[in-house]
């Protein structure tokens, strides 16, 4: 293939409000496009938030505005693919800001690659995860382990990404119909293993897999 390994700057940002992460991504996408920064992977957590993609069905948000206020859940509309998603503490959110040129200019391949990262990372933590034909995301036998929704901006620059349930309280997913899929449960790495998996452990596994799948070496 002759494709050499590219560097990858990894930023562990801790807990970042959704709107702030959105603004950061927008800035990084434009800086990536102009070449001022290299490929990056942002790893972070969001406070409780429900996000709606451009194709979201508002009926998939199951809590009223009053209840959202009461429980402290934000609702944000964003320019990415995918339906309604919930994010919250204990979920590892990864936003790769990558230039997919020249070798990876394929939207489906990019989605499948992100799934592969999660599957490998889960595998390295002894969780058997898989794709589900016709659905983007990563599943285990129990339910949905990770949601994926991405945006590819002009110049094949990526933003948004994946949300991997690590040790989050899954009951919060009761506030939405995840990605418009009614009939499937959500799960997390901790639930799968019956023990607490930390975000650090999950991050390490994801980083390792990310480097392998995308041929990027963490700088």
């Amino acid at each position: 293939m002759g494709d050499s390994v590219r560097g990858l700057t990894v930023r562990r940002l801790g807990v970042v409000p959704y709107a702030q992460a959105l603004a950061l991504q927008e800035r990084l996408v434009s800086e990536r496009r102009s070449g001022r920064v290299g490929d990056m992977l942002l790893l972070l957590e969001h406070p409780h938030v429900i996000t709606m993609g451009s194709s979201s069905d508002p009926e998939h948000v199951l809590v009223s505005a009053e209840e959202r206020d009461r429980r402290g859940i934000d609702l944000v509309e964003v320019g990415r693919g995918g339906d309604v998603t919930y994010h919250g503490p204990g979920q590892l959110v990864g936003y790769p800001i990558l230039d997919l040129k020249p070798g990876r200019k394929d939207l489906h391949r990019y989605l499948r690659d992100l799934e592969e990262v999660i599957i490998r990372a889960a595998g390295s933590l002894s969780v058997a995860a898989h794709r589900s034909p016709g659905l983007t995301g990563v599943w285990t036998a129990t339910g949905k382990l990770a949601a994926i929704g991405v945006r590819v901006s002009s110049g094949w620059i990526t933003s948004h990404g994946f949300a991997l349930n690590v040790c989050n309280d899954l009951s919060w997913f009761g506030t939405i119909v995840p990605c418009g899929i009614h009939d499937r449960d959500v799960t997390s790495l901790s639930r799968e293993l019956g023990r607490e998996v930390t975000l650090d452990q999950a991050s390490e596994a994801v980083l390792e897999a990310f480097g392998d799948v995308f041929q990027r070496a963490a700088l």
């Binding site: 194709s55 069905d57 794709r131």
Partner: peptide, 28 residues
């Protein structure tokens, strides 16, 4: 119309292609 091929529910005639390589730990 968008509803027919909405991204969240691929229609049977337009299924997503299977992944290029099967997930390593997938088969039950």
């Amino acid at each position: 119309p968008a509803e027919e091929s909405s991204p969240r529910e691929p229609t049977p005639s337009m299924p997503l292609p299977p992944p290029a390589s099967p997930p390593p730990a997938a088969p039950s």
